[in-house]
Design a protein around this nucleic acid. Structure first.
Length: 499
DNA sequence: ATGTGC
């Protein structure tokens, strides 16, 4: 163990800093952050970074500028292992992701507040918010029965699944991974796993979980209507064209994950692995039971990867269905509206990638994949020349960002942050932030919301300075900004705010 | 994050 101050002292001010661990010079942590951002990492967050770096089989650890305390590993880190899989550094919301839908509407189409109110109502009718909330008012064609639900979680965004749910099948080509997190060719193994889970009653109320397809959930999940502002340089304009972004037009940004299903599968994996560690008497990394792991090739690792894939498939189809429903809502309010998916990309997933020359599992926990043009893994995708879109939520007041990776991203294992990152804990934000000031700020920026009062623990002031976070990424040479997204209205779970 | 928590 080392103190926060000695660890910080080793960091290089430009961002690509290295912290030396007590084990010696061979175990660096890569820290991305300007000086002021590095001041936002508290002791527990740094301790979690140390524990994760020192855990068995871990070869790389990157701490991102949006990092804060997480489950075993910090939210906002990348952890690499060629030999072990770690459920904690994937997180409890498996394949929590961002998606962006570009609409063919000029920004003035959403200037009128009544139009925006109508859009909020039409979207909320189709995509409920809140824990436990599932679909409502769904047309019979979109009602997801159990047999279709089984195909959703075992096939992901297959052509057949997309067709049956009214999702344009070509949107699958705009997904970081359209199925399984890309780790298993066939769905048969997943069908076996699903059957076993349900047979052993380890996956309860599957019908209920499946009914949550097309819903946002709560917490920091949201849907947000945006106006696209493409950066004022040639590269931004050219990359934006490949991404399908249109300057001055309306877009819709969504943040959600695998809902109750992912939560249930992740929790089940934590408890079964913790029981095995206890039974076998294996030491926990850093003494933290949230850092349980399984060696690759073991039955435990395979079971985890199967469950991760089931949840990942749910999250993928959930996002695509939400985007289809949002487009339908726009078409109801503004007939003739067309929309194209820009991209769907996760920030809570483990993927198999080559790091250095070693095939490894890259755990991104609150971190976004960032592969630049020319990266071998992008061959055959629409983004092999430019690099893929990176979707980063900021906050409604300051906007969100679309970025593209640069060559420097290799030093962060081809990853960037996943947003602004919390600076105030939820309870502290609830206690300290002023509701009237928050609501006034939204009024001043003419941002509408479905919430009568915006949740205080989700207010912009509860998060780090987004510009400083982006500056950290740019200064370290990881990625460049392509566009800013400026909020016009926000859809969030209001149940905790209406007190 | 969550069939929501001090």
């Amino acid at each position: 163990m080392t103190s926060k101050s000695s660890m910080i002292a080793e960091m290089i001010p430009t961002g690509e800093a290295t912290a030396i661990l007590p084990t010696g010079k061979t175990s660096p942590i890569t820290v991305i952050g300007t000086e002021s951002i590095r001041g936002t990492f508290d002791d527990l967050c740094l301790q979690q970074a140390l524990n994760s770096r020192l855990a068995p089989g871990v070869t790389e650890l990157v701490l991102n500028p949006d990092a804060h305390c997480g489950y075993g590993a910090p939210v906002g880190c990348v952890m690499v292992s060629p030999t072990h899989i770690y459920p904690g550094p994937v997180g409890v919301d498996i394949k929590c992701s961002m998606s962006l839908l570009q609409l063919d509407l000029p920004s003035d189409a959403v200037d009128d507040r009544r139009t925006r109110r109508a859009l909020i109502d039409a979207i909320c009718e189709r995509t409920p918010t809140g824990a436990g909330k599932g679909q409502r008012n769904v047309s019979k064609a979109r009602k997801v029965e159990v047999d279709l639900g089984e195909r959703v979680v075992t096939e992901g965004a297959s052509e057949r699944v997309c067709q049956e749910l009214g999702i344009p099948p070509h949107w699958a080509s705009r997904c970081e991974d359209a199925f399984h997190g890309g780790y298993r060719e066939s769905s048969d193994g997943l069908r076996d796993r699903l059957g076993r889970l349900r047979g052993q009653r380890q996956l309860r109320q599957f019908e209920n979980k499946i009914s949550q397809l097309g819903s946002y959930g709560g917490g920091n999940h949201f849907g947000e209507c945006e106006v696209v502002e493409i950066g004022d340089d040639d590269r931004a304009r050219s990359v934006a064209e490949t991404f399908g972004l249109i300057d001055g037009q309306v877009a819709f940004l969504s943040h959600c994950g695998s809902r109750g299903l992912g939560h249930q599968l992740a929790s089940g994996q934590f408890s079964s692995l913790q029981a095995k560690f206890h039974q076998w008497g294996i030491p926990l990394p850093g003494g933290d039971r949230q850092l349980v792991y399984a060696p690759l090739g073991s039955p435990e690792a395979n079971a985890y990867l199967d469950d991760m894939a089931l949840a990942a498939n749910f999250a993928t189809v959930n996002h695509l269905l939400i985007n289809a429903l949002v487009l339908e809502a726009f078409q109801e309010v503004i007939p003739g509206t067309q929309g194209q998916l820009v991209y769907f990309i996760s920030h809570n997933i483990a993927r198999q990638e080559v790091v250095g020359n070693v095939k490894s599992w890259v755990h991104r926990k609150g971190a976004t994949r960032a592969m630049p043009g020319g990266h071998h893994a992008l061959q055959g995708t629409p983004f092999e020349q430019t690099g893929h879109p990176i979707l980063l939520p900021g906050n409604p007041r300051d906007g969100s960002a679309v970025m593209v990776a640069d060559a420097g991203a290799e030093k962060s294992c081809f990853s960037v942050n996943h947003g602004a990152g919390r600076v105030l804990g939820r309870k502290r934000a609830q206690r300290e932030l002023d509701q009237t000031a928050i609501d006034r700020e939204f009024d001043e920026h003419d941002i509408l919301s479905n919430c009568r009062r915006y949740p205080r623990d989700e207010a912009p002031a509860a998060y780090k300075d987004f510009d400083e976070v982006l500056k950290s990424v740019k200064q370290a040479g990881l990625a460049s900004e392509v566009a800013r997204l400026k909020a016009r209205f926000v859809i969030k779970d209001a149940s905790k705010a209406d007190d």
